[in-house]
Amino acid sequence: MDTTQSRTYRSPRRQAQAEATRAAIVRAAARLFADRGYAGTTMQSIADEAGVAVESVYKAGSKAQLLRRAHDEAVAGDDRPVPLMERDELRAAFAVDDQRALIRTFTRAVADRARTLTPISSAFMQAAGTDPAISATWAELETQRRHDMDRLVQAVAARGPLREGLTAERGATLIWTVLNHQAGWLVTHDLGWSDEEVADWMAEIITCLLLPSA
């Protein structure tokens, strides 16, 4: 009896090429979602932007899945599967002992995301208005953003007092509602602020919302 079992051969080079193609497709989708919105972006236009066949785009995911991946990469800063708050630059911020220095370090670590994330978030909200599944995904993302703000406020509160009468939960809610993608759009696209200016603006808002007057 033949006991030979067939084995699937995976070429590392071929796998690397496939991953590079998927990354190019996600980047192309992100550019188009930002420029044209969700409704104005087609799978064919993504293929044209990425320089691949449209079949490759469908293999990379549905349009909704590409939107989610584009959003996740804009939040994280790249395509590595590491959550925002576990990134080295955020870990460094949370290692700072002083409240105000922690806030400044945090905002400088994330300010550059605003420029790429805000148009993707706008496309997400556009799509959420017409697609219940995307709406549910957007709610999930906002829950995660709220959780991230809670981690920030908890870290600040662990290093000193918050302003009188403010709980950590209330502080996280304030930051979550004020520092949203619409505000990010205003400062990056309407006002054209640099990443440094955006970081200073974020730090000022967080400090005013959370900390006692100096």
Rank of each mutant, 00 (worst) to 15 (best):
N180G: 11
L141P: 06
A101V: 06
Y9L: 12
A18G: 11
S194A: 00
C208S: 13
A136P: 10
R7W: 10
D200P: 06
V96W: 11
R159Y: 07
T137Q: 15
T130Q: 13
I205N: 00
S135P: 08
G40N: 02
A128G: 11
R7N: 13
I46L: 12
F106V: 07
G171N: 02
P119A: 08
I46N: 07
H71V: 04
T21V: 12
Y38N: 00
Q154D: 15
G37R: 04
E204L: 14
A20I: 00
R159I: 09
P212H: 11
W201I: 03
A92I: 05
L186I: 12
D195K: 05
S213P: 03
V57G: 01
R146A: 15
A109F: 10
P119H: 03
S45E: 13
F106G: 06
I206T: 08
D48L: 07
Q126Y: 04
A203F: 07
L211E: 02
I103W: 09
R151S: 14
K63L: 05
A93I: 13
W201A: 15
S122M: 13
V187F: 06
A199V: 02
A23C: 05
A30P: 01
D148Y: 13
Q5C: 08
I46G: 05
L174I: 10
I25C: 04
A199M: 02
V54G: 01
D112T: 09
A109W: 08
R87M: 13
Q5Y: 08
A158W: 02
P161K: 05
Q144V: 15
L166P: 01
A128N: 09
A39I: 02
L174N: 03
T3A: 10
